[in-house]
Computed example of a mutant assay.
Amino acid sequence: MAQTSAGPFDVAIAGAGIFGLSIAHAAIRAGLNVAVLEADRVGAGSSGGLLGALMPHMPARWNPKKEFQFQALSGLAAHVRQLEADTGLSCGYRRCGRILPLTTRDKLEHHLERAEESRLRWHPDETGFSYRVEAAGSRSDWLEPKAAPFGIVYETLAARISPRAYLAALSAYVRRHGTLMEGVEVTGFDETSKLVRLSGDRAPVGAGCLVISGGFQAFELIETLTGERIGRGEKGQALLLEGADLDGKPAIYCDGLYVVPHDDGTVAIGSTSDRDFTDNAPSPDRSAELLRRATAFCPQLAGRTMISQWAGIRPRCHKRDPLIGRLPGFGAIYAATGGFKISFGIAHLVADCLVADITDREPGHPLPATFRPDNHFGAGRLDADR
Rank of each mutant, 00 (worst) to 15 (best):
M1N: 12
S5L: 02
F9H: 02
V11Y: 06
I13G: 01
G17Q: 07
G20T: 12
S22A: 11
I23M: 10
A24L: 09
H25N: 12
A27K: 00
A35Q: 00
G43V: 13
G48H: 07
L54G: 02
P56H: 07
K66Y: 08
F70V: 05
Q71E: 14
Q71L: 11
A77L: 01
L89A: 10
C96M: 08
I99L: 15
L102A: 06
L102F: 07
R105I: 05
K107E: 14
H111N: 14
L112F: 07
E117I: 07
W122C: 06
H123P: 00
P124F: 09
T127I: 05
S130R: 14
V133S: 04
V133H: 08
W142T: 01
L143T: 08
K146Y: 08
K146G: 14
A148M: 08
F150I: 02
I161Y: 02
Y166D: 00
Y166K: 07
A168F: 06
L170V: 10
Y173K: 11
H177V: 02
T179Y: 00
T179M: 05
L180R: 03
V184G: 09
E185G: 00
D190F: 11
D190C: 14
S193Q: 11
K194S: 14
R197P: 00
L198W: 03
L198P: 01
L198S: 01
L198T: 04
L198D: 03
S199G: 15
A203G: 07
P204W: 10
A207W: 02
G208V: 03
C209K: 10
V211N: 09
V211Q: 09
S213E: 09
G215L: 09
G215D: 06
F216T: 04
I222R: 01
T224M: 09
G227F: 12
Q237V: 12
L241D: 09
L241G: 05
D245W: 11
G248C: 03
C254S: 15
C254R: 00
G256S: 10
G256I: 05
L257C: 06
L257K: 04
Y258E: 10
T266F: 04
A268T: 08
T272C: 09
F277C: 13
T278L: 12
T278R: 06
D279Q: 00
N280D: 13
N280V: 10
D285R: 11
R286F: 01
R286C: 13
S287G: 08
A288H: 06
R293V: 14
T295V: 08
T295E: 11
P299R: 06
P299H: 05
L301M: 10
L301T: 07
R304K: 05
I307Q: 13
I307E: 10
S308L: 09
W310V: 10
A311L: 11
A311E: 04
R326K: 15
I342K: 10
G345C: 02
I346C: 12
A347T: 09
L349I: 07
V350A: 12
V350G: 05
A351Y: 06
C353N: 12
C353P: 06
V355A: 09
I358E: 07
P366A: 08
P366Y: 02
L367F: 04
F371S: 00
R372K: 13
R372D: 10
D374F: 05
G378R: 02
G378C: 04
G378Q: 04
G380R: 03
R381W: 08
L382V: 15
L382P: 00
D383G: 01
A384T: 08
D385R: 03
